[in-house]
Design a protein around this nucleic acid. Structure first.
Length: 951
RNA sequence: GCUCAGAUGGUGGAACUGGUAGACACGCAGGACUUAAAAUCCUGUUCCCGUAAACGGAGUGCGGGUUCGAUUCCCGCUCUGAGUACCA
């Protein structure tokens, strides 16, 4: 029988499902290996050919590891909360759960078709209450924790309370809000429960605070920074504005340093680590207090604090600049300057983020009229405001050193402020010079010192004066953790007055209530406000840690729940643990499961999650580690980014008539220079190797039914271009179509054959034939001319064994370094060789089946059983053992170069050593011809490699 | 602007530690089989000169360097893609 991929693939997909071939046990006899894919959001559009790229790679790796004797965890699930389902619900009134369910069914069908070896018994869905129960539970742990800088880890709030009760706020070194109170133990105890809770909220790892948020009116929700692009929402492209709002936040900044340090311990692509480093944005410097030269300010508030990374340049500081939003601006502004300052603030406020960015080159600012004192030299320097200083970074104020900082330089030039050189080699004629080389001048006690010495000396002096101290600043902000949306996890919190309280653990999961519409209420409250009688009722018998508020008059009352839901990244920040123990209803995963599987050994996914999912996941993981709930500091040991698959669009060229109208005549791409044409996207699915299928084109759109063509060599050639893959560009290729035509094994191998996994590349179906032909050729090795199964038990020859062992070794090497494209080529070479050798020996072919099975599992399962093996055993059979003895050659065709240019090959025994090889080469007639009687200047011989003769 | 990645035939790409550049595949051209088409198979295919071959020359974005030898290492530049954006 010929290679019937359709029957074969259906048969084995069913077999794997029926026999649960890939169900993973949490056993400990084999070494474990955890291969994870980034789980998809099940969108309505289904998979396109770009999505499976990473899944195919991870599946090959997982299958390979099984053959190598590992107990492999290779699960899949769905990140099923999200905006598109909700948008659809708003438009149609359909409950997002229903849409989501339907989309998941499509995804599942498409994934199954590709023959993945997922253990579906462990499937997770972030939108399922069994799952989000634990997302809520983790939220509660965060609420009940604070970050202790002294132990450098998160600890229980109870411990903090204990400390307050014994010592007050003294000795607490926490990551917390800026405005925490100081109090004694007695003062603490004297506080009412309300005030105590309000104070504790400033320490909790998830907390409420008024924050400036990215409010998107069109979506009716708040967006995270990474969901906003250039002032517009990433999804939908709606305008985003800044708005103040009470929001849940996550104190991720507590982990900034650990998130940074951890990067050095994990095997991730360098660019991705770099992106996280930039995002965290650690800068080491100093905070410096500049006294305000104004008697109106009281003694303990008479300073402006700035952050600088160049404390060494402080003698060059000739003015201060505050952000227009800085809280001191109003008080600093003198009456003469009031008009100018107000005008400037008004103008700055009007400018959108986008305009501010485009305007980066223009210098603008205003003088407050006030002065400050430079602490190191007592100089009186003016205080300005300008929008190049950002309120959200550092202290929202800078000391301007125009000789060393280009923005300060431009500002000083524009407003005629002094520029003082502070380093002897500094050249500041046309621009600032931020050099750190040379020696200091005009700088009093650091004159003559080097950069390192000067920085230390200045910081020491400032500390001594009480005017500053060394400080580390981070660019990263606490992450906002709330959406005014319906389709997300409810926050397990209710309110008594203005204070949030956790619901009882027994009441988890807090299930998403039904609502009549998925829109905000008329008064602007989130959709959850529409739920009827959705209130938390406390029970006196089940009161928790914050008990005093639930007792007495409050017991049994109904309280408002938090109405916002969790953001998209909540459910994906811990899901890899759920796969370890997906059905546990006592814990998010059992201790044994976590201790066995530990962390993800290989994680494959796109780099677009670099600063979102991958950062938040590391944060939650570190927190869970601090709580002793998990065992590893880093969740993903090795990570690979699969490249993006871009679209490759095809174009037809419509002839334009004299008056500029499009006609119904189309010009082949090679001829368009001779005509006036306009390009038109054409569906790539009716184009093959850039040749248009004319009949299908006529059916593509009704107005093309009577299209005419000007052809080249009888064919219509299309033009092409690389663009984003999108429906509107008609360049979306659906894997279903390709599977229908060539089968999943061909598609799997072709996606790998396209090029290195990590490289972005345009999808191009040209060439898939080659892979398909390869599989047929492989099939034919097992069959005679009449397509009858025919395998012999004869002893293999030396040449056959050599081919086999070459590929055994090559595939091992390739898979270990994730170079899947090169192993596909090598398979082709091996099959070409075995075809030439007319090899049908079981001893060779059975091993070939095992080696190829991770790549093309269906055809291999079929051949495996045809060879007489038990069905389903292929996935767990041992990988063939490489024997280098079969590759040993006794002769090598040495390339002989003259002056580095290869001229010929000479067969020489590999047993000869260098001098003997040299003699043999020089004796050769062909070499003599080049030497022309002269002696060579030099002869380089690398045994087994090359001979180079220098003349 | 900054950071990172990349540039090899008509196309996707290979060459892993400096050692035969262009493996493998697509496409194209020619041929076999066929009434024909499809499928399959065979041959050729970096470019230039020689218009058959041998042979010769050039060649991995550009310009230099190190080396017996460079796609690979170093310096400078150009272009493409991604991320980031006044971060003090």
């Amino acid at each position: 029988m010929d290679y019937q991929f359709k029957d074969i693939e259906k048969k084995w997909q069913r077999f794997w499902a029926d026999h649960q071939t890939f169900k993973t046990e949490d056993e400990t006899t084999k070494p474990k290996y955890y291969v994870l894919d980034m789980f998809p959001y099940p969108s309505g559009a289904g998979l396109h050919v770009g999505h499976p790229l990473g899944y195919i790679a991870s599946d090959i790796f997982a299958r390979y590891k099984r053959l190598k004797g590992f107990n492999v965890l290779h699960p899949m699930g769905y990140d099923s909360f999200g905006l598109p389902a909700e948008q659809y619900a708003i438009q149609t009134g359909q409950h997002p759960a229903i849409t989501t369910e339907a989309n998941i069914a499509t995804y599942r069908r498409q994934l199954d078709q590709l023959g993945f070896s997922f253990d579906w018994s462990r499937e997770v869905r972030t939108s399922s209450p069994d799952y989000y129960k634990w997302t809520q539970w983790i939220f509660m742990q965060l609420f009940n924790s604070w970050y202790n800088n002294d132990s450098d880890k998160a600890e229980s709030i109870a411990k903090l309370v204990e400390n307050f009760e014994q010592n007050g706020s003294a000795g607490i070194n926490a990551v917390c809000d800026d405005e925490v109170s100081t109090f004694t133990a007695d003062e603490w105890k004297a506080l009412g429960n309300h005030d105590q809770q309000a104070e504790l909220l400033k320490y909790r790892l998830t907390y409420l605070r008024e924050s400036t948020v990215n409010w998107c009116p069109a979506l009716g929700t708040v967006l995270a920074n990474d969901e906003v692009k250039d002032g517009f929402s990433e999804r939908g492209g709606y305008p985003v504005e800044q708005k103040k709002m009470m929001q849940w936040s996550m104190r991720i900044t507590a982990y900034a340093d650990r998130l940074l340090k951890g990067l050095d311990t994990i095997d991730w692509p360098e660019p991705l680590k770099e992106m996280q480093r930039n995002w965290i944005g650690k800068s080491v410097g100093a905070s410096v207090r500049f006294t305000i030269d104004d008697l109106r300010f009281t003694n303990d508030e008479n300073y402006i604090e700035v952050f600088t990374t160049r404390a060494d340049t402080i003698f060059g500081a000739t003015f201060l600049v505050l952000a227009p939003e800085h809280e001191l601006v109003a008080t600093l502004t003198t009456s003469e300057q009031k008009a100018a300052i107000n005008a400037y603030i008004a103008q700055a406020k009007k400018k959108s983020e986008l305009e501010r960015m485009a305007d980066a080159k223009t210098v603008s600012g205003a003088f407050t009229g006030s002065y400050a004192i430079n602490p190191v030299n007592g100089e009186k320097i003016p205080i300005w405001i300008a929008d190049y200083v950002l309120a959200g970074y550092g202290t929202g104020a800078v000391m301007a050193v125009p000789s060393g900082d280009q923005r300060d330089y431009l500002f000083a030039k524009h407003y005629n402020l002094p520029i003082i050189p502070i380093i002897d080699i500094q050249n500041i004629e046309t621009e600032a010079d931020p050099t750190k080389d040379g020696r200091y001048i005009n700088s009093d006690f650091i004159n003559g010192l080097t950069y390192k010495e000067a920085t230390a000396a200045v910081v020491a002096k400032l500390e001594e004066m009480g005017a500053g101290k060394a400080k580390v600043n981070f660019r990263m902000r606490d992450a906002i953790f709330g959406r005014q949306r319906y389709w997300g996890e409810p926050v397990p919190v209710y309110f008594i007055g203005d204070l949030p309280y956790l619901i009882d653990e027994k009441d988890l999961p807090l299930v998403l209530p039904e609502v009549d519409k998925y829109l905000p209420t008329e008064s602007g409250e989130p959709p959850l406000a529409r739920a009827v009688d959705w209130k938390y009722r406390t029970r006196k018998s089940e009161i928790g840690s914050q008990k005093s508020d639930l007792e007495g008059a409050n017991a049994g009352k109904a309280y408002e729940y938090e109405l916002s839901t969790m953001p998209g990244w909540a459910g994906s920040s811990w899901y890899w643990y759920r796969y370890m123990d997906a059905h546990n209803d006592k814990e998010f995963a059992s201790k044994q499961a976590i201790e066995y599987w530990k962390a993800v050994d290989l994680y494959i996914g796109g780099s677009e999650h670099a600063t979102g999912h991958l950062l938040y996941s590391r944060f939650w993981n570190k927190f869970l580690k601090d709580m002793n709930l998990v065992v590893e500091e880093e969740p993903f040991k090795k990570l690979i980014n699969q490249g993006m698959i871009q679209g490759r669009s095809n174009f037809v060229y419509r002839l334009i008539d004299e008056i500029g109208r499009g006609t119904n005549t189309f010009i082949s791409h090679g001829l368009i220079r001779e005509y006036r044409t306009s390009p038109l996207h054409v569906d790539v699915n009716i184009v093959e190797n850039d040749v248009l299928n004319l009949d299908k084109f006529k059916k593509f759109r009704p107005d093309f039914a009577d299209a005419e063509f000007i052809l080249e060599k009888g064919k219509y050639y299309c033009g092409h271009e690389v663009e984003k893959m999108s429906k509107s560009k008609f360049n979306v290729v659906n894997p279903d179509d390709l599977i229908e035509r060539y089968g999943a094994d061909t598609l799997r191998m072709y996606e790998m054959f396209l090029g290195p996994l990590e490289q972005s590349k345009p999808w191009n179906t040209n060439g898939i034939e080659g892979v398909f032909k390869f599989l047929r050729k492989f099939w034919r090795l097992f069959h005679d001319e009449t397509m009858k199964f025919n395998v012999s038990d004869d002893e293999p020859t030396k040449a056959e064994l050599k081919s086999l062992h070459k590929i055994i070794h090559k595939v091992e090497e390739d898979v270990e370094r994730f170079s899947f494209n090169t192993s596909v080529s090598s398979f082709m070479i091996a099959v070409n060789e075995l075809t030439d050798l007319k090899c049908n020996k079981r001893a060779i072919l059975q091993e070939m089946v095992v080696i190829l099975s991770p790549y093309a599992p269906h055809i291999c399962e079929e051949l495996w059983t045809m060879l007489g093996n038990e069905a389903g055993t292929l996935s767990y059979t041992p990988y063939p053992k490489f024997n280098p003895a079969y590759l040993i050659e006794d002769e090598f065709a040495y390339p002989v170069s003259i002056n580095g240019k290869t001229k010929m090959n000479l067969n020489i025994s590999l047993s000869l050593d260098a001098p003997a090889i040299e003699a043999a080469v020089l004796a050769s007639g062909d070499v003599q011809k080049y030497l022309d009687g002269k002696a060579p200047k030099k002869v380089i011989v690398v045994k087994g490699r090359i001979v180079n003769i220098v003349i």
